[in-house]
Amino acid sequence: MPELQTQPVFHAREVESSRPSRPCFDAPPAHRPARDTGEQTAEPARPKISVRNFTACFNDVPGIRNLTLDIFPRERLAIIGPASSGKTTFLRSLNRLNDLERAFTCSGQILLDGEDIYGPEIDVAALRRRVGMVYAVPVPLPWSIYENLVYGLKLAGVRDRQILDQRVETSLKEAVLWDEVKDRLKEPAHNLSGGQQQRLCLARVLMLDPEVLVLDEPCSGLDPISTGKIEDALLELKAKHTIVLVTNNTKQAARASDRTAFFLMGELVEVGPTADVFTRPRDRRTNSYLVGQFG
């Protein structure tokens, strides 16, 4: 009885930016999280993203609790932590992708260049162009490689063929994919291998020249060679973009980040320069995780 089904595909809450609980307060601009151990590194004073007392709930069950964290321009921040520690929820809060879930509510603030991204005036589509996301599983849309790449820019209203072609080339080069696909741009994206698909998804996001690049375990399904290529790309991209990388792989975090944040059960345990976090963690729980006690 297909006509009697009552399961929705997903819920339309994207356009409603009203939230039940939103305590209104102004965060001090130069405020640093108490447990931040990164005081000694010479970072610019003004964070790209500052998260202030941010709590995100699904069906009133908090996925992340009272999170306060700064992310600075042109740094690679790795987020590590065991399963269901709120890493992905946090990442998806940064470009408001959680809004697609009906049961999602949040409080606190996330400021991008000082502007609250959950504020009433925010254009969510534009925000998502500024905060580009790469998912754990590569999802090429069922079109050609070229169509996949230009889709985002076309949505934003860019029609000039010359600009599009040029952006395609630079993005593919940045994603270390140009040499492999330059002669087959008209082929279906599904013909690419898993590693190539993931780099295509990275290039697709880079087409939009996002200020912030968030990656959700981008290498979880990939072989070491593809992983290496993506990590190389991130190192290059750091020059222009702020990068937030969620990973299950602590070795990857150690290799491919400047600072590391450790999440546990929806809370930020500690954040600091990667070398410090890995060699002399401040918190006992971080140490336990790094030596493998949380799996």
């Binding site: 992708l97 697609l100 998912y135 849309l141 934003a156 939009l208």
Partner: peptide, 11 residues
Amino acid sequence: AYREASFGLGS
């Protein structure tokens, strides 16, 4: 996932 990918690209 197609929808998610599309939303992520600012649609």
